[in-house]
Design a protein around this nucleic acid. Structure first.
Length: 195
DNA sequence: ACCGGGATGTTCT
DNA sequence: GAACATCCCGGTG
């Protein structure tokens, strides 16, 4: 059994563009479910036109402006949830979006939540799919990852981040698409799109 | 494999 | 009233 260490608040309390690539290879855990993170994006607050925080704090994005290590879960497209790890200092409004992961444990439970997934590799392949597989919704918004608040946390199992991750533009935005703030594990089969 | 359209409703302008 | 950090399904090739 490899060691399994929860990421401390100090891990998150940095620039999201530094935290994002380091999250690759870490393991998202919620109850008996776990999956290895393979794709992430950085969102950089008031300077970032693609970020929810660009126009300041609202009721919806308040968690983003809270302490590092918070889980920012938001609702979009009338049916989907997406999850971020809040980074930086309080008030900055910076975070890392969890876009895709490789299912490790609790696969049966994930499958029952995601009947549309044909293969196991589709269970957490995309930010909203990942949330659906894990059952993450608005009730998890604001959960504190370093203390496994509400059962959700991110752990280091000894797998190092990739030395040369794939870097590219963020997906699904209408502003800020030119910024190369998406990181993924090169060639991984569980990415939201091939890269 | 690839592409196009519809779903669905909260949030902010 | 428009936009939305998306996904699924059914078409075609």
């Amino acid at each position: 059994m490899p060691r399994r260490k929860r990421l401390p608040r100090s891990f998150y309390r940095r620039d999201p563009r530094v935290v994002a690539p380091e999250l690759l290879g870490k393991v998202l855990v919620q109850g008996g479910l776990s999956a290895r993170i393979v794709e992430v994006e950085a969102y950089c607050g008031a300077e970032d036109p693609g970020s929810h925080a660009y126009r300041g704090m609202t009721k919806r994005n308040a968690t983003m402006f809270g302490p590092a290590g918070g889980l920012y879960v938001y609702f979009t497209y009338g049916m989907h949830w997406c999850a971020n790890a809040v980074c930086g200092e309080e008030g900055e409004g910076v975070a890392v979006l969890l876009r895709a992961a490789e299912p490790l444990t609790g696969i049966e439970e994930m499958r029952s939540r995601r009947p549309a997934a044909r293969r196991d590799r589709d269970l957490c392949r995309g930010p909203a799919r990942l949330c659906q597989a894990f059952g993450l919704d608005g009730s998890f918004d604001g959960a504190n990852l370093p203390t496994a608040d509400r059962g959700v946390t991110i752990v280091d199992d000894g797998t190092p981040p990739p030395v040369a991750p794939t870097i590219g533009p963020r997906i699904g935005l209408s502003a800020g698409t030119d910024l190369p703030w998406r990181w993924s594990v090169a060639g991984d089969l569980h990415l939201s799109r091939p890269a």
